[in-house]
């Protein structure tokens, strides 16, 4: 007699997630230093490309005199800008420490730069989640 087929959704609950500590370490490290999360899970090409992309966009945005949003909870747009910028990790912290990111609205490039910095932060957040998924064996 044939065994009844059992439909399963995803992995069985008894299987423990692999490298959970590494996954969370990759999450934090990847946020702080773009690409470092992928170095920890041995994805060298991704690490290099993600670091280059985030670095060029974040530093390029600052060079364009883009604005970096300080921590603010008064306005939803300021909060969104702050969270997006915070995604760049060390670039946000470094820029805040060194005094970059005051923004220059007198020139069009300042507006482009603001978008570049926010784009870099959001891109890094996606990269961090990718490293997290790789460490948890959810993705190749």
């Amino acid at each position: 007699m044939a065994e009844p087929s059992v439909k399963r959704r995803g992995k069985p609950r008894t299987e423990a997630p692999e490298n959970l500590a590494l996954a969370f370490f990759a999450l934090v490290a990847g946020w702080l230093v773009p690409g470092l999360g992928h170095v920890l899970v041995r994805r060298w090409v991704r690490a290099l490309v993600f670091f280059t992309s985030v670095a060029v966009m974040a530093l390029g945005g600052m060079a364009m005199k883009g604005q970096i949003f300080p921590p603010s909870f008064h306005d939803i747009f300021d909060l969104g800008g702050f969270l997006a910028d915070l995604g760049t990790g060390m670039f946000y912290l470094g820029a805040s420490f060194l005094g970059y990111g005051a923004g220059d609205i007198s020139r069009a490039t300042g507006d482009y730069g603001t978008r570049f910095i926010a784009g870099a932060g959001l891109l890094n957040l996606l990269c961090v989640l990718d490293a997290f998924d790789i460490a948890r064996k959810r993705k190749a």
């Binding site: 090409v45 991704r46 490309v49 993600f50 280059t52 992309s53 060029v56 966009m57 390029g60 364009m64 490039t109 482009y112 978008r115 570049f116 784009g119 891109l123 996606l126 990269c127 990718d130």
Partner: peptide
């Protein structure tokens, strides 16, 4: 600026 943005985002999305 648009070309630069599109270039880096496209390459990163492809790898992701």
């Amino acid at each position: 600026a648009m070309v630069l943005f599109a270039l880096f985002i496209s390459v990163a999305f492809a790898l992701l």
